[in-house]
Amino acid sequence: MAFDLDLCIENLFRKQLLGEALLREICAKTKEVLMRESNVVHVSAPVTVVGDIHGQFYDLIEIFRIGGFAPNTNYLFLGDYVDRGLFSVETISLLMCLKLRYPDRVQLIRGNHESRAVTQNYGFYTECMRKYGSSRVWTYFTDMFDFLTLSVVIDDRIFCVHGGLSPSIHSIDQIKVMDRFREVPHDGPMADLVWSDPDPEKEDFAISPRGAGYTFGSGVVHKFLEINNMSHILRAHQLCMEGYASLFDRHLSTVWSAPNYCYRCGNSASILEVGPGQSMYFNVFEAAPENERDGPSQQAAQSQTGKLPEYFL
């Protein structure tokens, strides 16, 4: 490798951006690593599972402080690394370098925000433009996103995905044969895996009132677990005040890892520590103290449009 990956990681931990040429090279190398992964990656416990981060860089550092640093702790990230927070570029740069450095100890699943269409609307595109002056870096990242895996199975018993289940997928083997090297479509099983939500009041699949997409109920979960001989579904994708939620007689968990989401929700966050044996522990944490000195109020002060008392009309 022509670049010093350890130095990149060190700089990123200090929140220093990597240069554009370097990022281009690292994205290309990461693609090569991701390309070799199956649509369903198998890993063993112990592993620490992380939900949505959304560019909250300091809270990602907090996760490493409380959960341990890679490679001493194995990590599985469930997607939604970018958009909404202030430091999506730093966040995805660091995670990508860690993946490249420790490919077997860091797993990155694709979330619905790892997509060109979504990042154009929710901040990552704009952030790339602001920090690098052109959309090229955004292109490198989003091209790399096309290679992220869709699911992980821990110890042959926990199925992990960003959103949820799909009516087109009964067996995990059906995921293995999907063509995932593409933009997340609006439609079909790949979209369902990154978009769908559980509905505790339902038994079956239901079409969302939005007119597209599905929710899935308890019957769907139990059938999926039975067919695939699994005991648990683990996913992210939905904000919850407590930082985690358990549904369907604890057969499905949501893990949410962005505390004080969007710097205003006041919610807790968690990471899920899956131990050998059957142990699962939600390690709950709050927003990192650094958000106070390098958060939205400082950014707003710099841009002169701060949230000061306003003569609104």
């Binding site: 009516p167 439609d187 079956d204 079409i207 009132p209 109920g217």
Partner: peptide, 14 residues
Amino acid sequence: LPMPKTVPTKPYDW
């Protein structure tokens, strides 16, 4: 991608 068996969605203004 045939329509799976779905239950009717309770309508509301999403």
